Simulated scan of single mutants.
Amino acid sequence: MVLALVCYSKRALAVSNNSAQFMISPVYSSLQKGDQNSGYYDLVVKKEKTVPIKVKIANLNNRQKLTFLVKVGNAVTTDSGTIEYSNFNSGKLLTSKYKISELAKTPKQKVVVKPGSSKIVLLNLKIPKSDFPGTLAGGVYVERLNNAKTKAKKGIVTRNHFAMTLPILLTKHPKAKRIAKMVLDKVKVTKGPVIKAQLSNVNPVIFGQLMINAKIKPLNQNKTIVQKKVQDYQVAPNSTFNFLISQNSSKLKAGKYTLDILMKSGKRRWHYVKNFEIKTNQAVPLNKRIKLNNLSIIMWIIMIGLILLIIALVIVILIQRRIIKLRK
């Protein structure tokens, strides 16, 4: 059994859970921008060489000491359109020159907190000498290591896993105008067929309320055969994610197609058109398409038969009522 608790809310002052038996909260420094009760780190680092990140861990268990793993992760955009602030395998998901996880002087720490007490943990971030535009985003990740075991049925033992995260935002130029820019990198086609659009926020800007409207059309035709529209996606700075458009659709046979994708956030608008091809070994097999088509035909026949049966019954009832009236 796994339970992950992540703080994304700007209004939350602390992250806690009764089952986890601990809570975490940020300890703000003089570098904090704006609201001191935001529930996350929003830091302006103009001339600082090292930035202290302090997190308070409270052990809510009055009988047992708890051990925690504390480390710094990066912010990435998930394929479902949320921001994950504790990613440790960013790889190609981030295109920024600097990553918050790489700025931490101590990559990870183990911390023991006595029963019913709290402890403040210090994490120092080494700020790059060269300038960086926009925002670097990540988070402080706190994981309880001595998690409780739970006996399940049939002798299977499960382990509860508890982790919490507080977001970190770093900027050197808080008053600079930041403009997001979304780009369609490529169309990914895999067996199924599964169609995904690889999308990137190429600028160091964190933003939300992203609308995506994707349409797939046969090449050189205006008829849309597959469409997917979503609202309120959240996007991390300099991040890349895969937007799933279609999965195992019988409408997409082997051939050439055009992806028409529109993205909007506020007044910003990005529109891209890209051609792609579904190869024979990637499309739905012919025998499977025939089965699906046959199933659709059978369903239509059944529905029409039921409708005709209902009409016939209604006619019979009306005729019987008329005969009864005439006899009277």
Rank of each mutant, 00 (worst) to 15 (best):
L3N: 15
C7K: 08
S9W: 10
S9P: 02
V15L: 15
M23L: 15
L31W: 05
L31D: 09
G34A: 03
D35H: 01
D35I: 00
N37L: 14
S38H: 05
V44S: 01
V45R: 05
V55E: 07
A58M: 11
N62C: 04
R63E: 15
L66P: 04
L69N: 13
N74M: 09
A75W: 04
D79G: 07
S80F: 13
T82L: 09
L94K: 04
K97F: 09
T106H: 08
K108S: 15
Q109I: 08
V112R: 13
P115M: 05
L125Y: 05
L125H: 10
P128E: 06
D131L: 00
L136P: 00
E143L: 09
R144G: 03
N146E: 10
N146G: 11
K154I: 11
I168M: 02
I168Y: 07
T171M: 14
V187H: 09
T190G: 07
N203Q: 07
G208P: 03
K217T: 12
K217Y: 02
I225E: 03
Q227K: 12
V235C: 01
F243L: 04
Q247S: 13
A254D: 07
G255K: 03
T258F: 06
L259F: 01
L259I: 05
G266T: 00
R268K: 12
R269W: 08
Y272N: 06
V273F: 01
T280Y: 06
N287I: 13
N294A: 11
S296F: 08
W300H: 11
I301G: 06
G305C: 11
L306T: 11
I310F: 13
I311E: 10
R321M: 06
R322K: 15
I324E: 15
K325V: 01
